[in-house]
Nucleic acid binder design. Structure first.
Length: 887
RNA sequence: GGGCAGUUAGCUCAGUUGGUGGAGCAUCGCCCUUACAAGGCGGGGGCCACAGGUUCAAGUCCUGUACUGCCCACCA
């Protein structure tokens, strides 16, 4: 039965207890044969090396809210947790640790190194799981996955082999992005371009016949030894004379052709471009088109090759200095200038990326992309929809995906080469002998797959594919993918391609892209800037629910979140408010209150509250369904605080003290029921505090776990617009009275007399029925509801919906301030009335606006006119009182 | 260069289908009213970036401009 709640909400103990409870009772472990419509989400697997950051906190909070809400709606909810092996990132971390021991991975050798990473993963990889727990994520821990689990690795191999057999994976020589620090190829989207200050040199190339020269502009003179052509625009009259001739590479003296291609921008630099096919993506394209020579001048370590002649062995930066100096010495430097240009950096280590020609594995993304493009919005809806254009543009311009990485940590490519005949065998399992020549000792590829290759399979590999599992049958495709837009292409697009190809269905019905969390100044949070907000610290300081509520409240679609600690602190007040409201309720609900019929509940305030509750239920339900998280949070916030606490709890205080047992009974039941339903509504956002309060509340029968409680059903009988409006009128009367007191500097606690002059019998009856409420909330000594004929002239007053509210003033009250108060009020009414009249005098408004709108405007004007008359009269009386007082 | 957002109170942001603009924080005043001072009550504060257009009516729809941010892109 009911237990008293401690005075202050202590998140730490409460959260720990509920986490344990939910884990032990396995309420988040669903059965594929269980009842309810299937609802599933796969976690965007955090990097196993990573610590939970605020972006994860947002992501997990939103997913958790959706899952908890879906569960409340009776769905069969599966949320699969897991982590990603994050190839390059994880390898880097372990290599750094090794470096501290003065070793590198080659000292250990491949096997020992990989073993070491696994050990590291076991030690540190579980930290992230504890952090997911700390956030209250209602994941199914029995289905925990890791991208390098045996099952998922088998899926990777199967996919690789199938794609290879279908010709959708191939090996080929291509210019790729090379990180000389990570010593691996990078996919196009793993390269981040940044504007950097650089220099543009103008270098003179002499014609081989010595007759002339041509000046070429370059930002990378160190690639000159790799030049195999100079290219100009075919229509450029400056260079017609040299097209088809040959020039000499500066310093080296090698003879190369001058070619013409419309690719060249005549306006840029000198209009002449040096072509270095091995060290520039566009030059690669030109080299192929014009069948140029391919000369590799820089190796994979960033050193100049023997092709660079006198510069061989130099680091590329040193070569740049030297070659510029040499050219200048030769008198062939035609000038140089500073310029800004985009430079590619490795997204993991920030090293400048070097275009590099090598043998790599590719997925024919160009062939898989069209289906993925067409899937949105036909098969999968994306929220917010504005991303469709970006999605289409990216998929329309996709290039084949380089999937081989020259690192050790990851899924090793399942391809073997025969040492005897060189035959390549691609297979799920290591072949014992060469199919062609029967030789043994086939050698597996050294490279591993891009991390995103296994992530691309995540929605079905986690459910047991390629086995035909019940999970797949029941829960694929997943209901919605929730992630940040920053990995739309890295991850979402690739999942879409793989899902469509292997499952014939898109991997998710909806994609919800949430914002990036930034700091208060709108900057990205990063360790180097020192502006990170650590979610674990926030949970520790303010409680998980406060953090979750804040993130949810700020998660408006299509907009970044600027987070600061003060905001979390602010929403902690809300958690506390809920807690205290519950404490109040529990004081009066020692036992389960007797049930009453709600459709015809007595008491205007009860009718109003239940009416509002219906609206909030509906509103929050819709908000969750459409991923309007901020709306859901706001609706819950306002209802709980501004309606339930500010009004209803105050309004039922007299009820609870009453001798009328029916009245007490009604108050208690409405209180109990509203609080319970509100807890359920808020539970998806604030699981812990709601769970704690829920179990303290008396219940009919066994106390249940709020996590398994159903979303409250609608009570159409409680929707009562008219009663709600009447209650709002009473509230306006009370506010007007309070305002008079506040503005005349009368202490709110000082009980005053009040006279209300209603406009008609109906209003009089309503006021009479609510007499007690008005007295209590406006803090009155007495209340008269009738004509003000004998009211003292020295009274403060207000007009509410035509009804005059009059407060006789006695004692030390600054009477002059009442006069200015009334003047201010009059001014406002005048202004509104002028605006309304202006509209009503506009003939086209009367003619064209809908009847309803015109009628409302007329009513409005009439109301204002009436208010003005009454205020003027009241002011007149008051002014007389002032005169009298002065005489 | 292309694309996408944003511009609303001092600050951070809401504002569903056009019908007199809201919240939190901050600020000012009064109150320790027996759930809550992490609180209550009340107030002040906005030509909704700018310029046009559509409309009886525009923060909301359209066009353009300015600034800010993000994404994409092969200007060497």
């Amino acid at each position: 039965m009911a237990e008293p709640l401690p005075k202050g909400y202590e998140p730490k103990d409460v959260e720990a207890r509920w986490r344990k409870h939910w884990e032990e009772t396995r309420v988040f472990t669903p059965d594929p044969g269980g009842p309810g419509e299937a609802f599933s989400i796969v976690i965007p697997p955090p990097n196993v090396t990573g610590a939970l950051h605020i972006g994860h906190a947002l992501n997990l909070t939103l997913i958790d809210a959706l899952c908890r809400h879906a569960r409340q709606k009776g769905k069969n909810v599966l949320w699969i947790p897991g982590t990603d092996h994050a190839g390059i990132a994880t390898q880097n971390v372990v290599e750094r640790a090794l470096a501290h021991e003065g070793k590198n991975r080659r000292d250990l050798g491949r096997e020992a190194f990989v073993e070491r990473v696994w050990t590291w993963k076991e030690d540190y990889g579980n930290r992230i799981l504890d952090q997911i727990k700390a956030l209250g994520a209602s994941v199914d821990w029995s289905r925990l996955r890791f991208t390098m689990d045996e099952g998922l690795s088998a899926a990777v191999r199967k996919v690789f082999v199938r794609l290879y057999d279908e010709g959708l994976i191939y090996k080929g020589k291509y210019i790729i992005n090379w990180c000389s620090r990570c010593h691996t190829a990078l996919a196009d989207d793993e390269v981040e371009h940044e504007q950097r200050r650089g220099r543009l040199w103008r270098v003179r190339y002499h014609l081989a016949d010595g007759s002339d020269s041509i000046v070429v502009a370059t930002t990378r003179p160190e690639t000159i030894p790799g030049d195999t052509a100079v290219c100009v625009h075919p229509d450029d009259e400056h260079y017609q004379r040299v097209i088809g001739k040959t020039v000499l590479v500066p310093v080296l003296g090698r003879e190369i052709p001058v070619i013409a291609d419309a690719y060249v921008d005549r306006e840029f630099g000198t209009g002449a471009l040096k072509v270095t096919p091995c060290h520039d993506h566009n030059d690669w394209m030109l080299g192929n088109k014009h069948h140029l020579q391919f000369i590799q001048a820089i190796d994979e370590n960033g050193l100049m090759t023997s092709e660079a002649g006198p510069y061989a062995g130099l680091a590329k930066d040193a070569c740049r200095k030297k070659i510029v100096a040499d050219i200048e010495a030769a008198g062939d430097l035609a000038g140089s200038e500073d310029m800004e240009h985009a430079v590619g950096h490795c997204y993991r280590c920030r090293t400048v990326v070097e275009p590099h020609v090598s043998e790599q594995w590719f997925v024919a993304a160009t062939k898989l992309a069209p289906a993925a493009r067409a899937a949105i919005p036909e098969l999968t809806r994306i929220y917010p929809e504005s991303w469709i254009k970006t999605w289409n543009h990216w998929l329309d311009n996709i290039r084949d995906w380089c999937i081989s990485r020259q690192i050790w940590w990851g899924h090793r490519i399942p391809a073997w080469t025969c040492p005897a005949c060189g035959q390549l065998t691609v297979a799920e399992d290591a072949p014992s002998a060469c199919k062609t020549c029967g030789a043994n000792g086939l050698i597996q590829e050294d490279d591993v797959l891009d991390t995103w290759f296994s992530s691309a399979l995540w929605p079905f590999s986690t459910m047991g594919w390629p086995e035909k599992t019940e999970d797949l049958e029941h829960w694929y495709p997943t209901s919605v993918l929730v992630t940040g837009f920053d990995i739309l292409f890295f991850w979402v697009a690739r999942m879409m391609m793989m899902g469509l190809h292997f499952m014939s269905k898109p991997p998710f019905r909806h994609v919800y892209l949430h914002a990036l969390v930034r700091d208060a100044e709108g900057r990205k949070m990063s360790k180097s800037t020192g502006n990170v907000i650590d979610p674990l610290v926030m949970i520790d300081k303010y409680g998980c629910d406060a953090l979750r509520f804040t993130l949810t409240a700020f998660a408006a679609m299509g907009r970044d979140i600027r987070l600061s600690e003060e905001r979390i602190e602010g929403y902690r007040h809300f958690v506390n408010k809920l807690w205290n409201a519950a404490r109040f309720a529990l004081i009066h609900l020692e036992d389960m209150p007797a049930e009453i019929t709600l459709d015809n509940v007595s008491g205007l305030h009860n009718q109003w509250l239940l009416h509002r509750l219906e609206a909030v239920k509906k509103g929050m339900d819709g908000a969750f369904a459409e991923y309007r998280f901020n709306d859901a949070a706001q609706l819950g916030y306002k209802f709980l605080w501004n309606e339930f606490c500010d009004w209803h709890l105050e309004l039922i205080k007299p009820d609870l003290q009453s001798q009328d047992t029916e009245r007490v009974k009604t108050a208690k039941y409405v209180l109990w029921l509203t609080l319970r339903e509100t807890l359920v509504l808020l539970h998806p956002i604030m699981p812990f505090v709601t769970a704690e309060i829920w179990q303290s509340l008396p219940a009919a029968g066994q106390v249940t776990d709020i996590a398994t409680e159903a979303w409250p059903t609608a009570r159409p009988g409680c929707v009562r617009e008219n009663e709600a409006r009447r209650m709002e009128f009473i509230q306006e009367i009370i506010v007007a009275t309070r305002t008079i007191k506040a503005e005349l500097n009368i202490a709110p606690t000082r009980k005053t007399a009040l006279l209300i002059h209603p406009v008609d019998e109906r209003q009089a009856a309503l006021l009479e029925a609510c007499r007690e409420m008005i007295i209590a909330l406006a803090r009155l000594e007495s209340l008269r509801i009738d004509s003000p004929a004998d009211a003292p002239k020295a009274s403060a007053s207000a007009v509410v919906q035509g009804c005059q509210v009059i407060m006789p003033l006695r004692g030390a009250v600054d009477l002059a301030s009442e006069l200015s108060r009334l003047d201010k009020e009059l001014l406002k009414v005048e202004k509104d009335l002028t605006a309304a009249d202006k509209k009503l005098h506009n003939e086209s408004f009367i003619e064209r606006a809908p009847e309803e709108v015109v009628r409302r405007e007329r009513d409005n004007a009439a109301r204002l006119r009436d208010a003005r008359e009454k205020l003027l009269a009241l002011r007149q009386r008051f002014a007389e009182a002032l005169m009298d007082g002065e005489e």
